[in-house]
């Protein structure tokens, strides 16, 4: 399997990553190298082996349903480019 430039453009768009046209050949080369490695791995016979979702041989710890977090809005909104009346501000989005 290999990727074409159009595939890369689509993935880049979905991921909101801007890739300069001049970088395209380099990105395509690297992605295709990765896919070649995946192809090699795909060739291994995995009959009878259970798929691994996580490398840790453990299961998820569950927490009790208790409110432990406090209001940290002032602190957290210092990260935001713009906030007003407690709301994060973003360019207008109406679908």
């Amino acid at each position: 399997m290999s990727v074409e430039q159009t595939d890369i453009e689509k993935i880049a768009k979905l991921s909101r990553i801007r890739i300069a046209a001049s970088d395209m050949p380099e990105v395509a080369l690297r992605l295709n190298d990765i896919l070649a490695m995946v192809d090699t791995m795909q060739a291994v016979d995995t009959t009878g082996i259970e798929p691994m979702h996580n490398p840790l041989d453990a299961s998820q710890r569950l927490r009790a349903d208790i409110v432990t977090e406090t209001d940290q809005r002032e602190l957290l909104q210092q990260n935001a480019p713009a906030a007003e009346q407690g709301l994060f501000l973003v360019p207008k989005v109406i679908e």
Partner: peptide
């Protein structure tokens, strides 16, 4: 959407 003229609040 209706609180700010050019921006959306989240």
């Amino acid at each position: 959407h209706d609180l700010f003229p050019t921006q959306s609040g989240i």
